[in-house]
């Protein structure tokens, strides 16, 4: 057993957990934040994507003990009260989901992509960088539209901020 402290969505969470505990289990079962989903459990589908110290990772393939002291953002940490994060809003407006199972991971991956590229994205790049997130419903079309729209709004917002 290890005493692990991970700051999740700005709140320090300390738990005594077995060393084999995965980050996704820490988030879902120990802290009770079930927005992060487990899809394949084999590092392929990306449903469990969270941000670990600011970078998108698959939380089914990180040990909680290895994340001791780290900062994690999950899907629950994106919205500002009742106001959706711009990427959440774009997925809503473009209907970038059907069953919704992959959506938390898709959105966390998309936020990471938009930030790393400063919103400078084209369709090819979005499709390439979403390779680690599998959706079995949508055919990806509306997901890509949502990410491109959110990226454009990110650029516009930052252009305004720069002025």
């Amino acid at each position: 057993m290890s005493r692990v402290t991970i700051t999740i969505n700005g709140r320090a969470e300390t738990r005594e957990v077995e060393d084999r505990t995965l980050l996704v289990q820490f988030i879902r079962e120990h802290v009770g934040l079930t927005g992060t989903h487990v899809g394949c459990d084999t590092t392929q589908c990306g449903a469990c994507t969270v941000h670990l110290d600011g970078r998108a990772v698959k939380s089914c393939t990180v040990l909680a003990a290895a994340a001791d002291g780290a900062e994690v953002t999950t899907i629950e940490g994106l919205a500002d009260g009742q106001t959706l994060h711009p990427v959440q809003q774009a997925f809503h407006e473009h209907h970038g989901l059907q069953c919704g199972y992959c959506t938390p991971g898709m959105i966390m991956a998309s936020v990471d992509i938009i930030r790393r590229h400063d919103g400078m994205l084209d369709e090819h790049t979005v499709r390439h960088e979403l390779e680690g997130n599998i959706c079995r419903c949508t055919g990806y079309h509306n997901i890509v539209k949502a990410v491109l729209d959110a990226a454009e709004k990110h650029r516009a917002a930052h252009a305004v901020a720069a002025e």
């Binding site: 590092t43 970078r55 998108a56 698959k58 393939t61 680690g132």
Partner: peptide, 9 residues
């Protein structure tokens, strides 16, 4: 290699 998330770890 792999995908974005894999390359981050």
């Amino acid at each position: 290699i792999g995908d974005v998330q894999v390359r981050h770890m």
